[in-house]
Design a protein around this nucleic acid. Structure first.
Lengths: 182, 182
DNA sequence: TTGCAGACATGATTTCTATCATGTTTGATT
DNA sequence: AATCAAACATGATAGAAATCATGTCTGCAA
């Protein structure tokens, strides 16, 4: 039910009066420190939200692709606190933040879409944290399966799952193999 | 800046016309499947939001204590999808969900507190995920330090940090010791 | 058909951390 | 001042997964 709200939010945003842009790989969509003027929805491709630290290392805070809202929290900030780096050729929909915020203020239905979208993101990010705090591959896989409910991922997706639950593909294959024999 | 919003949100909620309840350890505040009628803020103690799976194992989705909103996503659901279990003697503030939602609809300032609170929770949960996806204690500690910005935690807090970044206290002590000598 | 890239798969080794054990320091309480 | 609990700290060991290596299978394209 909440998922539906997320879908509707994005549908509404993408229907708004905004622009669509194609972005080449490796370019920056915005930089840390830039003033926030725009809300972005990644329609295709992959854009990573990355925070660079003084020691040179980086933290990836969001991997946005396939109809996801980029950097939700930027809606409440003056400047970006992260860089957005295009990792795959992408298409973004962009909307002036002023218009977006104005719509949240005045359009009650839209506002509900937004807040329930945020609530759902909180939920799923916490779920992922919980899975990642588990120590063994078996435990993490259990958590992942419970999360997605029914259904193993299609063939060709296991490697991606390994990434999501923070284990090496090899370790995941081994765990799957040991379950098959049992 | 966003953190301030979270504090203000809770301040506003706790000032509302609602009740305060003391809860003994090990009791349930609500069960999976119960209809959502109330919003809870944990003022003291510790309440865990837990989802039980068909196979008997459980996932902890939120550890709520010390002025935190419990189960934000329940505001957009008919029934709870988790159990709330009181892990330490706690005090909760409770507000009828109807009143809360009505206030969000009608009080623009309050609504902004709520949405920016949610946005911040998304941010911090994602950050935690990123830290937990790192493999070594050193990497996780780096992530934690970058997250909290400047300043090590006070003495007496290290054990809690170890929990947050998903490593054993011993491993964290060792990492700290090795940094001191370098 | 052949070639190739990627997923799927498994063995061997190395590296790291959890765990257990044990001891020290610190702060609160009496 | 004495006591006690909790955090702080470190050593030793066992266990799990990362990594490296190697190989098979599949689908796609030349």
């Amino acid at each position: 039910m909440i998922e539906i709200m997320s879908a509707k939010l994005i549908e509404q945003i993408v229907k708004s009066r905004g622009k669509r842009r194609k972005l080449d790989r490796n370019r920056y969509l915005f930089h840390q420190g830039d003033p926030v003027k725009t809300l972005y929805v990644v329609e295709e491709g992959l854009i990573e939200l990355t925070r660079h630290q003084s020691d040179g290392s980086a933290i990836v805070l969001q991997r946005a692709g396939n109809l996801t809202v980029l950097a939700e929290a930027s809606a409440y900030a003056e400047i970006y606190h992260c860089d957005a780096i295009v990792q795959l050729p992408s298409i973004v929909f962009q909307l002036p933040m002023k218009i977006f915020l104005e719509r949240i203020r005045t359009d009650e239905g839209f506002s509900t879409f937004w807040t329930s979208h945020l609530a759902r993101e909180v939920q799923s990010a916490r779920y992922r944290s919980e899975i990642l705090s588990r120590k063994t591959v078996a435990d993490r896989l259990d958590g992942w399966l419970a999360w997605k409910g029914n259904g193993l991922p299609a063939k060709g997706q296991w490697k991606a799952v390994a990434g999501q639950i923070g284990v090496s593909p090899e370790a995941l294959y081994r765990e799957l193999a040991s379950r098959r024999t049992k």
